[in-house]
Nucleic acid binder design. Structure first.
Lengths: 129, 129
DNA sequence: TAAACTGTTATATAATATATCTAACAGTAT
DNA sequence: ATACTGTTAGATATATTATATAACAGTTTA
């Protein structure tokens, strides 16, 4: 389990932690049942506060990705079954649209954006499970 | 020029404004040289504060999308030429990855995400200019 | 030219989010 | 029992977001 935080980033520390744990989940580096470092351990190794790590863990548990139990370390929850709810699709679609809009307004060509999308599609196909 | 704000949203008002103006730019509903409502006008019609609108306009001008001149209304700037800087591509790529990761962890199937991406690609192709 | 509009700057206040620190409490593992 | 877990409770500090009021500077228009 490896994490790093960027103090120069405008992104809050707890969000940086969440992002990296999610990435490790997607890549299969973390699997259901795996134990995370204790909040004190991780806080110590990152030179940040216990409660900042805890906030990250809390948010992840609210999203159903972590299981938190008193006295025990946090463990990776059983990942959600594949459920293509319209609600979820709509949210993702909206977020995709935002990124693409920014890309075009930043001066990226349609074809460049097209390529980036294709590239991510390939990353998907070559992923685990 | 039409805007709406959602008070129940956790997204700051000024960001909601920015987002909607960008969308209108992408769809070609706003073009270079077009005048935006004055900060006081827009604030009034949305029942929000002048400075909240101003913050939105400021951020947009910092991104080179708006031209602000003392005494005059804000106008849409000449949109950036197509410049596929590696820096920009890297940022967009990172944001795309985040969205896709969330999609998968939310339980969307790879194929569903694939479809959403294809759909956005099509929206691109059918866009203006 | 005067009045009415622009953006801009300056202060102040308030609520919320983020991060830290210290301390205690409750459950689990050794 | 001891030492580890998460949890809850305070307090403090800083940054962000939003509001409000007022004045100033440049532009438009009547």
């Amino acid at each position: 389990m490896w994490l790093s935080i960027d103090n120069k980033s405008s992104r809050p520390i707890y969000l940086q932690i969440i992002l990296q744990i999610k990435e490790q989940l997607r890549r299969g580096e973390l699997k259901t049942g795996d134990e995370l470092p204790s909040v004190r351990e991780l806080a110590n190794s990152l030179s940040i506060n216990m409660h900042t790590v805890r906030r990250a863990y809390l948010r992840l548990s609210e999203q159903g990705l972590l299981s938190l139990r008193l006295g025990r370390r946090a463990t990776i929850a059983s990942l959600p079954q594949i459920t293509n709810s319209t609600e979820n699709e709509a949210e993702i679609s909206a977020r995709l649209e935002e990124v693409i809009t920014d890309a075009l307004l930043m001066g990226l060509s349609s074809s460049a954006v097209h390529n980036l999308l294709e590239q991510q599609i390939n990353n998907l196909e070559n992923a685990k499970t």
